[in-house]
Write a protein that binds this DNA or RNA. Structure first.
Lengths: 198, 198
DNA sequence: TCATAAGTGATATGTTCATACCACCAAGAT
DNA sequence: ATCTTGGTGGTATGAACATATCACTTATGA
């Protein structure tokens, strides 16, 4: 067969352009035309690689989730041997926060998809809740490790869910409130102080 | 001058239709045409009362915020005389949660606007952060009341911000995860247990 | 070498939308 | 009574969009 063109690389190039457009101008501004212009290619190419717009947007969403997942595993493996429960939880929660430009972009993009999923059956609850549920389980496990045998299973799970919810809420604040950046370190420390021990 | 037609009532009728459309089909589905159809009036009327689409959407946003504010004051005044700090904070936080159909609709609508505001300069940070900041201040005040003179001002403020962020995060979960409704009572109680006392 | 199909471009089509424009009605003022 | 203006409806216009179609190019395999 003819030609070469690495499909995966092409698709990544296009979804990256889409992510920039969505983060800058919103999900509604992500049209075939705007994304093609951002990527420096023709409209036809975007269609060629993704077909319909719905499939294209879903692929973009998956790309963001995959990147976030990769960052998580990298972050956790960088913790070194024998991390304390608090170190593990701290690593997980800070990874949820938009602390640099790339993470900020991805947070905005995921936020846009999350809002869109509420009013469209194209995205299932598993798409939006799968990752959070995994995080809650992981954190609950660390809490039980920190609290020892006296720990109540159910309570650890509730606390973990509260911590993820709180950090997600902080992420929203960081997106809007410029002054929040200075507070976020103290806020996270305080949350860990209150929550990690029994 | 001729005719009567209560403008405020008409505007409320139209923004109510817009809120239903946005909650059901998303912000992008809120067009002059869809809103006019939902309200049972002509497209021309929506234009007549609101002018451009931007002004129309801003008016819809303001209507949601005004309703939420009214619910807050009503809820707080229904607490009776001499409520405990925990009662006050509990009332504020439960009011943030989508616990019935109307609140769920408004939560989705506010969420849509919040996401849109991130990528458009039409909505200022004050529009989205004004209310949360007021809630944080109010809760911090209650925390100081609960903790007595030993309370650290700064810490109470941090804790209040964490509580609002956590509850907002829980609200997001409730919108997506059907099973969360059964947990939310225990989650809020646990959050108050952990946070209200020093 | 040349036929084939992947890859790429330009453009057409039909729809939906925001907004503008034109016409009409109804009621209060004169 | 009729003029005048707020209120209402229908429709036109031009832009943006998703999608489809036609045409061209190029590398590979026979």
């Amino acid at each position: 067969m003819p030609k070469l063109a690495d499909h995966d690389q092409r698709r990544a190039q296009i979804t990256s352009a889409a992510r920039r457009v969505i983060a800058r101008d919103g999900l509604g501004a992500a049209t075939f035309q705007s994304v093609a212009a951002e990527a420096g290619i023709s409209v036809r190419l975007v269609q060629y690689y993704f077909g319909t717009k719905q499939k294209f947007l879903l692929a973009t969403h998956r790309a963001v989730v995959a990147d976030a997942g990769a960052r998580f595993t990298e972050r956790l493996s960088a913790l070194g041997a024998d991390p304390t429960p608090r170190e593990v939880v701290h690593a997980i929660l800070t990874e949820l926060l938009p602390t640099d430009a790339a993470r900020r972009r991805d947070t905005i993009v995921l936020n846009s998809f999350h809002a869109a999923a509420l009013t469209s059956p194209d995205v299932t609850a598993e798409d939006t809740m799968g990752a959070p549920r995994f995080l809650v389980r992981t954190i609950a496990e660390q809490l039980r490790r920190a609290r020892g045998d006296a720990a109540d299973q159910r309570t650890a799970e509730l606390d973990a869910e509260l911590m993820v919810a709180g950090t997600s809420g902080l992420a929203q604040t960081l997106l809007v409130d410029d002054g929040a950046e200075a507070r976020v370190g103290a806020l996270l420390d305080r949350l860990l102080d209150r929550m990690v021990e029994a």
